[in-house]
Computed example of a mutant assay.
Amino acid sequence: MTHRILFVCLGNICRSPTAEAVTRAKAQARGLDLIIDSAGTGDWHIGKPPYGPMQAAAKAKGYDLTSLRARQVSGADFGSFDLIVVMDDDNAAALSAIGPTDRVRRFTDYAPEAGLAYVPDPYYTRDFDGTLALIET
């Protein structure tokens, strides 16, 4: 059985594409058959690649984000994915306005040892390495 996972953040240029790339690499290394994608709740960056500093941090750890392009989450995604993983509660609230939330989970629910309620947005914090480390966890 194939599992389909969608990662969602605000603009789909930092956190969610990084989660997509990291999860894809880890799944492939373990031989898992997963379909993984990412999207943003906003439409500011549609069609653009991930943010340069985020790409650089990921590349330094062996993850290639260059082929990814930002897209906005849609109502159809709720039927296309088994699990929708949001980076923060604002993302969850935005999704609740367009579809059912029964498949929506916070990313940090899968990393309780981090002691965080959300994945900080490095576009604002400038801590690209810290965000990547949390996502790898």
Score class of each variant (00 low, 15 high):
Tyr123Trp: 10
Gly11Ala: 09
Ile35Ala: 09
Lys59Arg: 15
Gly11Pro: 04
Tyr118Glu: 15
Pro120Asn: 01
Lys61Val: 05
Met54Gly: 11
Asp88Tyr: 13
Leu134Met: 11
Met87Trp: 08
Val86Ser: 14
Arg4Pro: 02
Arg126Gly: 00
Thr66Tyr: 04
Trp44Ser: 07
Thr2Asn: 11
Arg4Gly: 08
Ala19Val: 07
Leu10Tyr: 11
Leu95Gly: 03
Ser16Met: 04
Ser74Lys: 12
Ile13Phe: 07
Asp33Lys: 13
Ile5Ala: 08
Ala97Pro: 00
Val8Trp: 12
Val85Asn: 03
Ala133Phe: 03
Thr108Asp: 12
Arg4Trp: 07
Arg103His: 15
Ala70Glu: 02
Val22His: 03
Arg105Pro: 05
Asp90Pro: 02
Asp88Cys: 08
Ile13Asn: 13
Thr108His: 06
Thr41Gln: 10
Ser38Ile: 14
Ser16Cys: 04
Asp129Tyr: 00
Leu65Asp: 02
Leu10Gly: 13
Leu65Cys: 00
Thr108Ala: 11
Thr125Trp: 01
Gly99Met: 04
Gly47His: 07
Ile36Met: 01
Arg105Trp: 01
Ala111Thr: 06
Ala133Asn: 14
Val8Thr: 11
Ile5Met: 03
Pro120Leu: 03
Pro53Ile: 06
Gly99Arg: 06
Ser67Cys: 04
Asp33Thr: 15
Leu132Trp: 00
Val104Ser: 10
Asp89Met: 03
Asp43Glu: 14
Ser96Tyr: 03
Leu68Ser: 02
Leu10Arg: 15
Val104Ala: 10
Asp88Arg: 07
Tyr124Leu: 12
Phe107His: 06
Leu68Trp: 00
Asp37Thr: 12
Gly11Thr: 01
Gly47Leu: 14
Ala94Cys: 15
Asp64Gly: 01
Pro50Leu: 09
Arg126Leu: 14
Glu20Phe: 04
Ile135Gly: 11
Cys14Arg: 07
Phe81His: 03
Val86Ala: 15
Pro53Gln: 11
Ala29Leu: 10
Gln72Ile: 09
Tyr63Met: 12
Ser67Phe: 04
Ser67Pro: 01
Ile13Ser: 12
Ser38Thr: 11
Asp102Phe: 05
Asn91His: 09
Leu34Val: 14
Ala133Arg: 14
Pro120Phe: 04
Phe128Lys: 05
Ala97Met: 06
Gly115Tyr: 12
Asp88Val: 02
Ala25Phe: 02
Ala70Ser: 10
Ala21Gly: 11
Ala58Asp: 06
Gly42Asp: 07
Ser74Cys: 09
Ala114Thr: 10
Ile135Pro: 07
Gly115Arg: 04
Gly47Asp: 08
Asp33Ser: 10
Pro120Asp: 00
Gly42Ser: 15
Lys59Gly: 03
Met1Val: 14
